[in-house]
Design a binder for these strands. Structure first.
Length: 642
RNA sequence: GGACCGGUAGCUCAGCUGGAUAGAGCAGCUGCCUUCUAAGCAGCAGGUCCCAGGUUCGAAUCCUGGUCGGUUCACCA
């Protein structure tokens, strides 16, 4: 049980004894005591004045007295300021905690709780390489999985690869038209990049072909359009010339975009891509073969990147195998009367009673849409694993989609419905706005990794240390620092907030960064080598003397790790861990560097007594372990030396 | 227009189950390496917590209204 929990239950018992009031322990408000006051933890007594019928000061005094008398092992002393009851925790509590935990190699890890969770993340399209936005997704998914595991869950990391559809046909078509048979082998270009290059090529041609069509349409020449599109374009162009639309910048922009989109549909190359998609669906041998080949290039590239990032999966799903799923669910839904058919045979669900809209699930021709396959895939996953919870790490632009997905599954009474959780995260934006692959303003993941690692290498060289390191050792260290910096940068911010990345400034290696934390860890390890610390031998030692202020502070902070880990899971936010581990490293650095009259007063190597040295060695070991464990939960390794 | 998310120091972000004088990092300025790693430490400066009401002993935090920004409401995925 954590200190905070102990204080809570002691306080609840005290309230019961003093005022005969039942207050659930978890409802008692406890804060860490502000540095300017005496004590470690503070109970807020304002809420108790209602039934104590005393002033806050008197209530606090009485409660403090009671706690001290009845919990001598926990509460050593107290002081009351206004309605704040500051508790001074018994020192033996901290030294005992230290002794029990400093050598625990699995610090913070909870025993299995019998619950199973699937975390779906990454889920890339196979038509282009990964970019910075994907990195946030990958790091989040990986880290959340680790956090869940540490909290006792069994985790299945899943990746649903979007390997089919119009996007990959675009790459395939452009490759056929312009590549002259180039392959990753002949060009030396990484597979995912090669395929991505032809996606860009397609978009370039598409833009070229769309331009004259747009120009003609704006001149009221609609010869490029037929059928429903003809009607639409006429309406749009007419609407555009209306004076009220001319006044409204947003509307005008929207209409312009719609016209552009409509024109793009009419281009020859787009028509060809659509034909290719139809051929793919019909199982055309040549198209399937090219598709297999190009996807295999992409997978090779992705595997390299995943491996470098230290990211892995337990289960792969492919959309080419799941895109037809969901139709049986729709049939069942119709039979249950949850869904309904319209005149054109299309199938819908009415969600207006829930404040949402009507949602299409099958087109009139019986083909499915994105939602349909997601329904089917949700059922497939559940049939595969029967997990208690299914987490989808997906950007926040799909909030509505997942709200609808869960609601439909509930209405269909699917057993997987309740466990669905959308871990929604904000976009990574550049200072000028969103990254757009069409406009070539994306930050490529591989480039980014290379850059970070070489920055790390420069910094390491500049430090002038590690002259005795071998080349392989150095490479490993540079990767540890460079990748760590990226991961920490993307994980330290609350997932649901969108974040801004400035490529000009790149990622810092000072301050609130992984490098800072890694450095603190390496420094601790260096000290431990210096004193030839033997953790196993120290296990028998329990410090009896009193603790100096910063010794106590750092034990207190270490003790909070377990509740931080719980909070990270509850909030589904690795940023909770990132903030904590930074604070811990900061605290140790202060402890390390604290000087009085030119002397390091917390020196370990030159400790003033054998007892102090043992105590501080335990503290150092514990802190190093907590740091390493926390960072591991973020997917970041820490070095022994740097 | 409806729904959802966000607005905290020059910049990037913590804090949000209501509690003490709102915190970090970066950038700026001062100091500190003959003693455990200066990728560090100590300090200075920097605030209309978007605005206005309300609830409360107490509001950055909760409620209402407004405002600005983002996302979404596709027979795209």
């Amino acid at each position: 049980m954590s200190v905070v929990q102990s204080i809570r239950s002691a306080a609840a018992a005290a309230i019961k004894a003093l005022y005969n009031q039942e207050i659930p322990a978890k409802d008692i408000a406890i804060n860490t005591t502000k540095p300017e006051f005496e004590g470690e933890y503070t109970i807020l007594v304002f809420p108790f004045t209602k039934f104590s019928r005393l002033k806050p000061e008197e209530t606090g005094e009485k409660l403090g007295q009671y706690l001290k008398e009845h919990n001598p092992d926990l509460v050593a002393g107290f002081n009351v300021i206004k309605g704040f009851l500051n508790l001074h925790i018994e020192e033996r509590y901290w030294t005992a905690y230290l002794q029990q935990h400093f050598n625990n190699r699995n610090i913070g890890i909870k025993p299995a709780n019998g619950k199973k969770v699937m975390v779906e993340y990454s889920s890339p399209n196979t038509n282009k390489p990964l970019h910075l936005g994907h990195l946030r997704n990958n790091f989040l998914g990986y880290s959340i999985s680790e956090i869940l595991k540490a909290n006792g869950y069994e985790v299945i990391k899943a990746n649903l690869v979007n390997d089919r559809g119009i996007h990959i046909c675009k790459s395939m078509l452009a490759w056929q038209l312009f590549a002259h048979g180039d392959t990753p082998q002949t060009t030396g270009i990484k597979g995912d990049h090669l395929v991505g290059d032809y996606y860009v090529k397609f978009e370039t041609i598409l833009k070229e072909q769309a331009e004259p069509i747009i120009a003609r349409a704006l001149e009221n020449d609609f010869k490029d359009f037929t059928g429903a599109d003809l009607e639409k374009i006429q309406k749009l162009v007419t609407a555009m010339h209306k004076p009220e639309v001319q006044q409204d910048k947003d509307k005008l922009e929207k209409i312009n975009d719609d016209i552009k989109e409509l024109a793009r549909k009419q281009t020859e190359i787009m028509q060809q891509a659509k034909i290719m998609l139809q051929q793919w669906e019909a199982g055309n041998h040549e198209v399937r073969s090219l598709w297999n080949t190009m996807n295999s290039w992409v997978y090779e590239g992705f595997d390299q990147t995943y491996k470098r990032l230290g990211i892995d999966f337990d289960k792969m799903y492919y959309e080419s195998q799941t895109y037809l799923l969901g139709k049986d669910l729709v049939e069942e839904g119709l039979a249950k009367g949850v869904l309904f058919k319209k005149e054109d045979n299309s199938v819908w669900i009415d969600l207006t009673a829930d404040g949402l809209d009507e949602k299409l699930l099958l087109r009139g021709d019986g083909t499915s849409v994105y939602m349909t396959q997601d329904l089917g895939t949700a059922r497939l996953k559940y049939d595969d694993f029967h997990m208690d919870q299914s987490i989808y790490v997906v950007a926040d632009e799909q909030n509505y989609h997942f709200k609808v997905l869960q609601l439909i599954l509930k209405k269909l009474q699917e057993p997987c419905a309740d466990g669905i959780f959308h871990l929604s995260y904000g976009m990574v934006e550049l200072p000028h706005g969103r990254m757009k692959s069409r406009e070539g303003t994306v930050v490529d993941a591989d480039d980014m990794i290379d850059e970070m690692i070489s920055t790390a290498a420069e910094q390491t060289n500049a430090s002038g240390k590690l002259k005795d390191f071998g080349e392989d050792e150095l490479t490993l260290l540079h990767e540890m620092i460079g990748l760590g910096a990226m991961k920490f940068f993307l994980l330290r911010v609350d997932p649901k907030k969108r974040m801004i990345f400035n490529p000009e400034e790149s990622i810092d290696l000072h301050g609130f960064t992984s490098t800072f934390v890694q450095y603190a860890h390496a420094r601790i390890k260096s000290i431990l080598r210096e004193v030839a610390a033997d953790a196993d031998k120290l296990e028998g030692y329990c410090h009896k003397g009193s603790l100096m202020p910063m010794e106590k502070e750092i034990i207190v902070l270490n003790e909070q790790f377990e509740s931080v880990l719980e909070e990270a899971q509850k909030e589904m936010s690795p940023s909770v861990i990132a903030n904590y581990v930074f604070r811990l490293a900061q605290q140790f650095n202060s402890f390390y560097a604290e000087k009085v009259e030119g002397k390091y007063i917390y020196s370990i190597v030159n400790a003033e007594s054998e007892e102090s040295q043992k105590l501080r060695t335990q503290i150092a070991i514990l802190t190093a372990r907590t740091i390493a464990r926390s960072m591991k939960l973020l997917g970041i390794d820490v070095p022994e030396r740097m």
